[in-house]
C-alpha cells in the first residue's frame, strides 16, 4: 500500500480513506481521532471521537460534556481496529493526555505525531519514538535558531528576579492548557512554596491536573477580593498571555511581565510584546529535537505540517530523506 493511499490531506484535515476517519480535523466530521486537547486540534461537534481519556476529559471541560456524539477512550500502546486499519496511540510528551497516532495497514506504518517535545515534563508522559515508514512531524520551531534551554534554568531566572525585585509582582503568561501547569510544577520543583496566583481561565484545567495526581501546590485566585495591591508584592501570578495586556493586570504592583514560550528565544519578539523577562519554555520540539526524532523513527519519508516547513524539508534533503510539506490548514503556527 502506498503511503498517500493510507493518509492524505483534505480540507477537513488528515484523512484515512480505507479507515474512513480523520486525525485532528478542523471541521466537524463523522469519526475523528484526536491527538491532544489544544483547541486547534480538538474541536467540538464530531459524531464520534477516539482519544486518550485525559484528552476526552479536557475536551469535556472546555466544550461541555456533549462535545461529541460518542466518545471512546484509547489506551496508550493498545491497538484498535478501525475498518481494518490498525490504530495505536503512543505518548507525545506535549501536554497531559497528548498522543501520537500510528496508523498501519498492509505493511505500511505512518505515525502522525501531532504536537510533541522531547524535553522532560513532569506533567505528562514522555514522547516515545515509534519506528515507522512515514513520520508526520510538526515544525512550529523548525528553524536552527530555535534551541530551547533546560526548563529549570528558565524557572531559576524567575526566582532570581523575584528575589531581586521583592516589591514587584511577576506575571507569567502561559497557555491555559499544559504550559501553565508545567510552569507551576517547575516552580514547585525549584522549591517555591508560596501560593501561586492564577487567572480564572486556568482554574478548571489546573484543578483537573491536580485531580490526575500532578501536584501544583497551593493555587489562589488572582483577584482583587483575595487582596489589596500591596498584598501581591513579590507574588508570582500565572495567566493566559492575553490577560496581561488587559485591564485585569492592573491590580498587581509594578508587574514584571514574563512570557513562557519557545518564541521568547528571539529578543525582538520579547521586545515587541513588552516582555521584560522572557522564559524560553516550550511544549514543542526545538530544532535539535526535531532532527533527532526524525532520525530515531527511521522513517524514509517525512511529511511536515504546520510551522516553518521549508527549513526542515531542506534539512531532510541534505540528509537524503524524502520530505514534503503537507499544507494542512487551520492549525496555529504561533501556538506555544
Amino acid at each position: 500500500m502506498r503511503a498517500s493511499d493510507l493518509l492524505k490531506s483534505r480540507p477537513e484535515g488528515l484523512y484515512c480513506p480505507p479507515g474512513d476517519f480523520f486525525i485532528d480535523p478542523v471541521r466537524p466530521v463523522e469519526r475523528a481521532l484526536i491527538t491532544h486537547g489544544h483547541s486547534d486540534h480538538a474541536r467540538s461537534g464530531h459524531r464520534s471521537v477516539l482519544a486518550t481519556q485525559e484528552t476526552l476529559d479536557i475536551m469535556g471541560l472546555r466544550y461541555g460534556e456533549d462535545f461529541a456524539g460518542t466518545t471512546q477512550a484509547a489506551t496508550l500502546g493498545e491497538t484498535v481496529d478501525i475498518n481494518g486499519i490498525a490504530v495505536t496511540f503512543h505518548p507525545a510528551g506535549h501536554v497531559l493526555g497528548s498522543a501520537q497516532i500510528a496508523v498501519e495497514h498492509g505493511g505500511m506504518r505512518i505515525v502522525a505525531s501531532g504536537d510533541y517535545k522531547r524535553q522532560k515534563d513532569a506533567t505528562c508522559l514522555p514522547f516515545e519514538p515509534i519506528r515507522c515508514d512515514v513520520f508526520i512531524t510538526e515544525a512550529t520551531f523548525g528553524l536552527p535558531v530555535f534551541r530551547h534551554p533546560p526548563d529549570h534554568e528558565e524557572i531559576a531566572r524567575v526566582l532570581k528576579s523575584a528575589a531581586q525585585f521583592p516589591e514587584r509582582s511577576h506575571l507569567i503568561g502561559a497557555y491555559a492548557l499544559g504550559k501553565a501547569q508545567r510552569v507551576m510544577r517547575l516552580l514547585r520543583d525549584a522549591g517555591y512554596d508560596r501560593p501561586i496566583y492564577i487567572h480564572g481561565a486556568l482554574a478548571k484545567l489546573s484543578d483537573y491536573y491536580q485531580s490526575q495526581g500532578i501536584d501544583l501546590g497551593r493555587l489562589e485566585p488572582g483577584t482583587v477580593e483575595s487582596g489589596a495591591k500591596a498584598d501581591f508584592a513579590g507574588a508570582i501570578v500565572v495567566g493566559p498571555p492575553s490577560a496581561f495586556a488587559d485591564r485585569w493586570a492592573r491590580r498587581f504592583p509594578d508587574p514584571i511581565s514574563c512570557f513562557a514560550s519557545g518564541w521568547m528565544r528571539i529578543r525582538q519578539r520579547a521586545k515587541q510584546g513588552g516582555v521584560e523577562l522572557p522564559l524560553i519554555i516550550s511544549d514543542h520540539a526545538d530544532w535539535d529535537e526535531l532532527i533527532v526524532t526524525i532520525k530515531e523513527t527511521g522513517a524514509e519519508e517525512i511529511w511536515v505540517t504546520h510551522g516553518r516547513e521549508e527549513a526542515l524539508v531542506r534539512w531532510c534533503e541534505l540528509e537524503g530523506i524524502a520530505a514534503r510539506p503537507l499544507h494542512l490548514v487551520g492549525y496555529e503556527d504561533e501556538g506555544d
Binding site: L143, V145, I266, Q268, A311, R314, W315, L318
Partner: peptide, 21 residues
C-alpha cells in the same frame, strides 16, 4: 548549510543574534 543560515537570518533579522543561536 548556507541555505539554512539564510532562512534563519531572514527570520531573526539581527546578525549577532542569529549567529549566537
Amino acid at each position: 548549510d548556507p541555505v539554512l543560515f539564510g532562512y534563519s537570518y531572514d527570520y531573526v533579522g539581527d546578525l549577532a543574534e542569529t549567529v549566537s543561536l
